[in-house]
Design a protein around this nucleic acid. Structure first.
Lengths: 228, 228
DNA sequence: CGTTACCTTGATAACCGTCAACAGACGTGG
DNA sequence: CCACGTCTGTTGACGGTTATCAAGGTAACG
């Protein structure tokens, strides 16, 4: 049976990892390293695209500003991901904004160089198409979840997703660490409602909470809740 | 100021209208006409893509089946639109389903022919990329709307969108005509809640309702509600 | 030590989903 | 032409969920 959790990932790291070593080297030769502190904006709504970004280290939230300035976060990119190419390819202004949620090392490829790369690496265009098609499915899935799932199910679902996003291969641990407000803006609720629900999850021994750090304890039960 | 209503359209008709007359003729030579009765499925979730579709006449809803079989509709395609290419290009199964909501004349291009066309019409691939990038913005907009807007604002917003979808150039009129359940599944609510709200809109003289047909009366006020 | 940002908790009301009953519309077949 | 079942839409009652307002607590940082 299909589980929504299986289709919450953009897989934007696949674009780069699918390239050959030579292509990878070529691509790297066009990048320029940038350092961002936590909380810095990388691009913003209605801004004009100047290039694309690859995350070397750190995490970046992608969001849109809705009613009364409330952010709607719809993705968190992590190490290895390529992002920021939609508006560039569509020749439109940015529809969304991106901001670091940790200190980040980012590789930047400017617009012209990216065009050059699209010509020099024939498979790149196809990889982008594949990835965008996949993203389409993810966003459609997100829409269905937001429109139909209860808050409780949404929280469980996105905790499981973030569990993956925050997984550290070297220590094999996963500690979700982001402001309550951001988490609220992912699952589409108010800060206070989120807090109460987290408390409840804690009492049910589904998660453990230490300040802003969240660890998952009972993944089986969380999965059951996410699918309800 | 940015209005959400401005970014609710996929513009999938632009793909075809951007082609030269020669390219258009070439594309047409690969199509096969199909007739669908109202309510027929064109493709369905987890199905394997066999080609792409162009609407000659009629309307098609695109949706995903969520909890307890409840449909989440996220787009309605109309005359001139090309659709069904995402899963094909991504080499994945259909993530969504499509079903006619009127009797339709559809032009079908099978998978291999579509590949041939992608090679013969160089600009086609780029047009698809552009369109998908644009769609990304539309879906993100939809997510923000669903997560943040009140039911009342969502109804006003989508009535305005449907006003456009159902606009008839020859008569210059616009009569929204679809089952209550479908409308409910667009704005993400229950049939009953939708019914009550429509009644309210009618009492406020914002719309007129005749059986399942809805006409907009006070577009200015609807816009104001949509932006609240 | 004070300021600021972030988080928790409580009280309240509104919104909306669900259940249930009913009324029309429609098409089919007798 | 009528009887019937089905599909669709309407209305009412109800309760749960969750947003909002307000206050107070705690951590972080200079």
């Amino acid at each position: 049976m299909f589980k929504e959790i299986d289709n919450l990932f953009f897989e934007s790291d696949k674009i780069l990892s699918s390239l050959s070593p030579e292509e990878h080297t070529l691509l790297n030769s066009y990048t320029r390293p940038l350092n961002f502190k936590e909380g810095q904006l990388i691009f913003y709504e209605n801004g004009v695209p100047t290039g694309v970004f690859i995350i070397k280290k750190g995490k970046v939230k992608i969001f849109k500003t809705g009613i009364y300035g409330k952010e709607q976060i719809f993705y968190i990119y992590k190490e290895g991901d390529l992002f920021g190419y939609h508006a560039l390819l569509a020749n439109e202004k940015y529809e969304d904004a991106s901001q670091t949620i940790e200190d980040c090392e980012i590789l930047f490829i400017n617009k012209d160089d990216f065009q050059t790369l699209l010509e020099k690496i024939p498979s790149l265009k196809h990889l982008l198409i594949q990835n965008m098609s996949h993203e389409f499915g993810v966003l459609v899935n997100t829409i269905t979840i937001l429109a139909q799932k209860t808050l409780r199910a949404r929280l469980a679902l996105y905790l499981l997703k973030l569990y993956d996003t925050y997984h550290d291969k070297t220590t094999n641990t996963s500690i979700i660490n982001l402001p309550r407000e951001d988490l609220a803006n992912i699952i589409g609720t108010a800060r206070e409602s989120l807090g109460r629900l987290l408390k409840q999850f804690k009492e049910e021994k589904l998660i453990s909470v230490n300040k802003r750090e969240i660890e998952l304890i009972d993944i089986q039960k969380l999965r059951a809740i996410a699918n309800s």
